[in-house]
Every structure is written in C-alpha cells, then in structure tokens.
C-alpha cells in the first residue's frame, strides 16, 4: 500500500476530515503535521486512548481532544 487514509476529528468541533498519510506514520507524526502539541492533547484511536507512538492503519478514526484550557 502506498498510502493510508485516516479520519481526523477535533473533539468539540463538527467537522472531520480524511487525511492521506505514509503507511508508517505514527500518531505523533500526525500531530506534528497538524501543528498540534502532544503536550496539550489526548488522542483516541478508534475510541481508545493510546500512546502517540502507535502506528496508524488505513481506516483509523482519530479523535483529538484538547486538554489545555486555562490562561
């Protein structure tokens, strides 16, 4: 497979989008690509909170929850 497709959703926002990625992409790589700091988010992969070093698979649903809320 030359590419995989994952669906990315920011929790609390209506829109979700499909992103094409290299097959060996990890969640940490995806966060970098999206400009999200791993220190400020929790990621659910197919409804499970997982470590950001997990590699993504074709068809994954990735939900990004922002946890830094104060000033």
């Amino acid at each position: 497979m030359t590419h995989i497709k994952v669906t990315v959703k920011q929790v609390g926002k209506k829109h979700q989008r499909e992103i094409r990625l290299d097959p060996h992409t990890t969640i940490a790589d995806l966060l970098r690509k999206l400009g999200s700091s791993r220190e400020t988010v929790v990621v659910r992969r197919n409804e499970k909170i997982v470590a950001e070093e997990e590699r993504l698979s074709d068809g994954d649903l990735i939900e990004i929850l922002t946890i830094v809320t104060g000033g």
Binding site: G12, T66, T69, G71
Partner: peptide
C-alpha cells in the same frame, strides 16, 4: 469541563 477560557491570552 474541557472548555477554553475566552480570556486566555497574552
């Protein structure tokens, strides 16, 4: 509650 304070800035 995971809302963002509207005054968070600076």
């Amino acid at each position: 509650h995971l809302g963002v304070c509207p005054y968070a800035s600076g």
